[in-house]
């Protein structure tokens, strides 16, 4: 991969030669992707192009047949998913998954990393430290919930949230892990236009504070307004890469989307 980026810094995430087949179907075929720190990188492609599978390969929810994923300078393709999250790369799901019978606040608290209280023995002997960590995590969770507009719902069951609010909670929860990079799988899917606008603004805000994003999205307005670079995937392989305006005028991309 020899891309045109002139910034001489290492990508926070780079993957190359990723292959995954299910039986005879090659879902991802020699795909490659790079995310520059502090950027919002988009990933688009027609239905069935393998975008979500590529996400699963990056976060190792599905183990790749071949290929290599480097995050923050270290190979992660053989790490279990939870360790990848612990290293600072967190993912969300295409259909928002919330923990229904836990409160919104509990959903947030769960996401905090390196909690002393999550160790069985510590729960017995380190009560004071756990209480202190819980207070801090709570404050931080309420802060994030306030910024994303869910603070009123903090004590409600997450199962009672609307589709759009679930998307917001997923993003908030991902932020709670203090990540270096967030992989968002269709943050605007099934969300009303007002809320889409709000989600986009929020992602933009966080990005200006230094957070990197990799976003799968079908909504072109979202991609065009947010992304610095866009990768196009078709039939499991890279089709094109460039700025949003370059992609929009790329004949290959138009062909992949609309047919000849």
């Amino acid at each position: 991969m020899n891309d045109t980026t002139t910034i001489p810094i290492l990508p926070v995430l780079s993957a190359a030669g990723l292959v995954k087949s299910f039986g005879g179907v090659v879902a991802v075929n020699e795909a490659a992707i790079e995310v520059v720190p502090g950027s919002i990188t988009g990933l688009i492609g027609p239905n069935g192009a393998g975008k979500t599978t590529l996400f699963n390969l990056l976060s190792n929810f599905i183990h790749p047949d071949r290929g290599r994923v480097i995050f923050d300078g270290e190979p992660i393709q053989n790490l279990p998913p939870h360790e990848i999250t612990q290293r600072g790369m967190v993912r969300t799901f295409q259909v928002a998954r919330v923990l229904s019978r836990l409160s919104v606040l509990e959903n947030m608290l769960l996401a905090a990393q390196q909690q002393t209280g999550e160790n069985f023995w510590s729960t017995w002997f380190l009560g004071g430290r756990i209480a202190k960590e819980e207070r801090e995590a709570r404050d931080r969770a309420m802060e994030i919930l306030a910024s994303i507009g869910l603070v009123e719902k903090a004590q409600d069951y997450a199962g009672g949230l609307s589709g759009g609010q679930r998307k917001l909670l997923e993003i908030a929860r991902a932020l709670m892990t203090r990540p270096k990079l967030i992989l968002l799988d269709e943050p605007a899917a099934g969300v009303n236009p007002t809320l889409i606008h709000q989600i986009c603004e929020y992602i933009g805000d966080r990005n200006r504070q230094g957070m990197s994003f990799l976003i799968i999205e079908h909504n072109m307005d979202v991609i065009m307004s947010l992304c610095d670079r866009v990768y196009v995937l078709a039939e499991g392989s890279n089709l094109a890469v460039g700025t949003p305006s370059e992609i929009q005028t790329n004949p290959n991309v138009l062909e992949a989307y609309l047919g000849q």
Partner: peptide, 23 residues
Amino acid sequence: SPWGRVLKAIREDEQVAKALGKN
């Protein structure tokens, strides 16, 4: 405790627990 919270998260959706860094 936070330990029990992880258990409940696994009950609700273990993919989420995994994605949030829990073993």
